[in-house]
Design a protein around this nucleic acid. Structure first.
Lengths: 118, 118
DNA sequence: CGGCATCCACTTGGATACTG
DNA sequence: CAGTATCCAAGTGGATGCCG
């Protein structure tokens, strides 16, 4: 996780990397977007909807929960059910995701659009 | 690289992930920050300063170059030398890195600072 | 149903020798 | 010196069985 071998990590680098690692990985973004668009979801629903293995889903949700981006709520139903949802705090990630979305779109133009305009 | 199995990747997700993958990995950020703070660097300098293996450095620089974030300049010196540096375009990444830095710092407070304020 | 344990495949990054 | 090829270690994600 924190394998920085130079003093690059000092001020700016560390904070940027913290943010980076929180949303990195194959499923973090997909999960947050799913909650954002469809609301609360149960464990099994996520497994089926996203076609993610339970082992991985469990780990991803735990990490998101540790970072206070999602909540885990146990329902006292006949079989047991657990609901996951994003927190209000998770919305603050918008200040990061929005610029990333915009830059990504511009970059696609920069790379693909101007491919042969040397 | 692009293993999105749901329609989550549609609009927003794709662009965000594009940006994410460009700056992900162990060395991308360190390299860009090194150029930013110390200016142009030769291949061997980077290997020694960062303690990165040549194989990995070569791959990382190629990827950054493909995304037009760094330039590669061959010098016609006695032994051969190659200089790498960031492009002006790379500076536009600031609109992404700055919010990431700020959110990362706030998040550190949110997680560590308020650890026992439930 | 939630989710952990086990086993496995693929990817990422490192060490090092070697070539132009 | 720059960069590649080879080999290898560790991490990440997937499949599946099992248990409470």
């Amino acid at each position: 996780m924190e394998h920085l071998n130079e003093k690059e990590c000092k001020s700016a680098g560390m904070a940027v990397r913290d943010t980076l690692e929180i949303i990195s990985g194959k499923w973090k973004l997909i999960l947050l977007l799913t909650f954002y668009k469809k609301g609360k979801r149960r464990f099994r629903e996520l497994v089926k909807e996203l076609n993610i293995s339970p082992r991985v889903l469990s780990k991803e949700l735990q990490e998101l929960e540790m970072n206070k981006l999602v909540t885990r709520t146990v329902r006292n139903t006949r079989p047991m059910t657990v609901e996951y949802d994003i927190t209000p705090y998770c919305r603050t990630l918008g200040s990061v995701l929005q610029p990333m979305k915009e830059w990504g779109e511009l970059h696609r133009q920069e790379i693909i659009g101007k491919k042969n305009s040397e």
